[in-house]
Design a binder for these strands. Structure first.
Length: 585
RNA sequence: GCUUCCGUGGCUCAGUCGGUAGAGCGAUUGAUUCGUAAUCAAUAGAUCGUGGGUUCGAGUCCCAUCGGGAGCUCCA
């Protein structure tokens, strides 16, 4: 495949290569824009890049645009592909470029041009009558785009700013062959089956009601899962030297004014009146932890002082951002506040990074790390911010952990290291985070006695491993497609009787397993064994025990595994061995 | 919050041009007592998200509102 570069040169690249793929998708977005201009000439074009999977183009339509228009657009695109237009490239100076775009009434392009330096050389690509200001690269001819599909339409703010006009964004995908497109669409369908909202309903894990948008209910099986994660978490945190506290979810306005939340987090906090005074439901647990810290005086000898808390927090998230368990208005953060001296920054951060890595690796999660720096509405002085940001940066560098910098995305009180996990369709969600904070100890005038016998201000680390347990469960469900490992399965073993003559024996086995700590239940309905197996499979139960005449006589069980099928006959002792061996977190 | 689409029994979905709701699964009851992914039969279950409007007549058309999906903005 020939690729036309910005400097006019031609390179050879396959679709599988990054360069080829980007050019391919980018050109498809131009074909989309060309089709749109042919069909609706008054439409203004904004931008249309290739993205991680496919491409989009932002348009300003002068009519209501919906997916109903896709059919005729796709037909027009098909035509453009068949016309096999050549992509021609040229450059001009900025002044000329503005003239060209003004003549075509492309106001968004003109606005972009006006923001570029005056001496900038402007690159253009042209295919047939369609001209686009664009730095490419592009494929050389339109007819390599053998298969494409428009996927969805959505709103997107011009230049990503909600104060600007909302444009109409059309997403699409394209491939060099029809089969590849089919395969891609199949994969999307498969991924949808792993959606935690769908599985959460099917497996009876959690529920959301319109009576409480964004406030998830945990159902019996989901709560087992949540509690198991908490047990696992406690065990790790005891090992790592944390002590656990629990602080109230409602505290008075003065506290939130001291912490800065009342000013910086006001629109996200739910408030209430108690005896006529303002109170707020906590959106974070840190101020409560601060009160506990300040109850008594502390020495550097106690540091690092690691105080953990499973904090139930509430935040008024915008309705449009809610998403199953991933984005909710009420969740439990596996929080901890760690008080340290400046010398302890590096080691403590590294320890936490290791802990997070241990947990994520244990579940087989892939993750990426971001360093988020000072946001616009922050508190504190430049010096502290720089020290904190460098502290995090140095820790990451010395761990040789790859990360990207997320400029201006830190908390209002400090920079942070964020750990992002992927859901079933590749969207990433921030889970773990480590935040270095010089401000809150300042606001609360927290102190410790140093080696020199004088009072000093401690540094505070805020950190979560799961992030929110809700979101983490969402990721878990999608990662395992509902097939949890044995230790996390709400029901680990289902005992299926072949007829009700064997129910007593089945119940005896149930008691034996329960005494050994396994979660199991008997399916004693008067149904055929095939049907009971089907039910248990659909519930994604890891182990099924089939109980009939043979088993009762031999005092055995027939074992069936969720993914491996029939394991044959064995004694209860053998079964317990297998179960115990597998049942580890 | 914004753009756009969607909202029919517990679940998944059908319902033509407006003519007064239908299937499968599930549930319940009865029969069946069965060997590794669906036994048979019967019964119950819906004022079609909610509130207005147009119309002789609205699940179907219009408006508002609530909830949901996709994305944007925001964020654990």
């Amino acid at each position: 495949m020939k690729i036309k570069m910005k400097d006019g040169s031609i390179k050879e690249a396959d679709f599988e290569e990054e360069l080829g793929k980007n050019a391919f998708w980018h050109t498809t977005s131009h074909i989309l824009a060309q089709a749109i201009k042919r069909l609706y000439p008054t439409t203004k074009c904004a931008i249309g890049p290739s993205i991680a999977e496919g491409f989009y183009y932002d348009f300003d339509f002068d009519f209501r645009f919906s997916e109903e228009h896709f059919t005729e657009i796709e037909a027009q695109m098909e035509k453009i592909v068949k016309e096999n237009l050549q992509l021609k490239h040229f450059t001009t100076d900025r002044k000329k470029a503005i003239q060209i775009m003004e003549k075509r009434e492309e106001t968004y392009k003109v606005e972009m041009l006006n923001d570029l330096p005056e001496n900038e050389e402007i690159s253009f690509y042209q295919q047939g009558e369609y001209l686009e200001m664009c730095s490419g690269p592009h494929v050389a001819y339109t007819n390599v785009i053998k298969a494409f599909k428009l996927l969805s339409v959505a709103g997107a703010y011009w230049r990503g700013d909600e104060k600007n006009k909302m444009l109409t964004r059309i997403y699409g995908i394209s491939f060099p062959s029809k089969d590849m497109l089919k395969e891609y669409l199949n994969r999307l369908e498969e991924a949808k089956k792993r959606d935690h909202r769908k599985l959460g309903k099917e497996l009876g894990l959690f529920a959301l009601f319109e009576e409480g948008p964004g406030f998830p209910f945990f159902l019996p099986k989901g709560l087992i899962l949540k509690n198991l994660l908490i047990d696992y978490w406690r065990k790790l945190h005891i090992r790592e030297g944390y002590t656990e506290i629990s602080t109230p979810i409602i505290l008075n306005r003065q506290l939130w004014e001291t912490s800065g939340h009342w000013e910086h987090y006001k629109d996200k906090m739910y408030t209430t009146l108690i005896d006529g005074a303002d109170f707020a439901i906590k959106p974070m647990s840190c101020p409560g932890a601060m009160l506990v810290y300040k109850m008594e005086s502390h020495s550097y000898r106690e540091f690092p002082m690691r105080i953990s808390e499973l904090g139930l927090i509430h935040r008024n998230e915008k309705s449009g951002t809610l998403h199953g368990l991933m984005r909710v208005r009420c969740c439990t953060q596996d929080d901890a506040h760690i008080f340290i001296t400046p010398e302890q920054i590096q080691d403590e951060i590294k320890g936490i990074v290791h802990l997070i890595d241990e947990v994520y690796s244990n579940f087989g999660f892939k993750y990426h790390v971001e360093l988020s720096t000072r946001p616009k509405n922050s508190i504190g002085n430049d010096e502290d911010w720089e020290m904190a940001t460098n502290g995090l940066k140095n820790a990451l560098d010395s761990l040789k952990l790859p990360y990207i910098i997320n400029d201006g995305d830190g908390a209002f009180y400090g920079p942070k290291i964020d750990f992002h996990l992927e859901d079933s369709i590749g969207r990433t969600w921030q889970c773990g985070t480590i935040q270095l904070d010089f401000q809150l100890p300042q606001c609360f005038e927290a102190e410790y006695i140093g080696k020199d016998g004088n009072k000093h201000r401690p540094i505070m680390i805020h950190r979560v491993v799961f992030g929110s347990i809700e979101r983490f469960i969402g990721i878990l469900i999608e990662h395992f497609a509902g097939k949890f490992p044995l230790w996390l399965s709400p029901i680990q073993v289902k005992i299926l009787s072949i007829s009700d003559k064997y129910i007593d024996y089945a119940k005896k086995i149930e008691m034996t397993l329960k005494k050994e700590g396994f979660r199991c239940e008997v399916d004693g309905r008067s149904e055929k064994i095939g049907y009971k197996i089907r039910t248990a499979q659909l519930e994604k139960t890891p182990y099924m025990l089939i109980i009939g005449e043979k088993e009762v006589k031999a005092n055995h069980v027939s074992v069936r595994k969720r993914d491996d099928g029939d394991l044959g006959n064995m004694s209860i002792k053998q079964l317990l061995e297998i179960l115990h061996k597998e049942n580890i977190s």
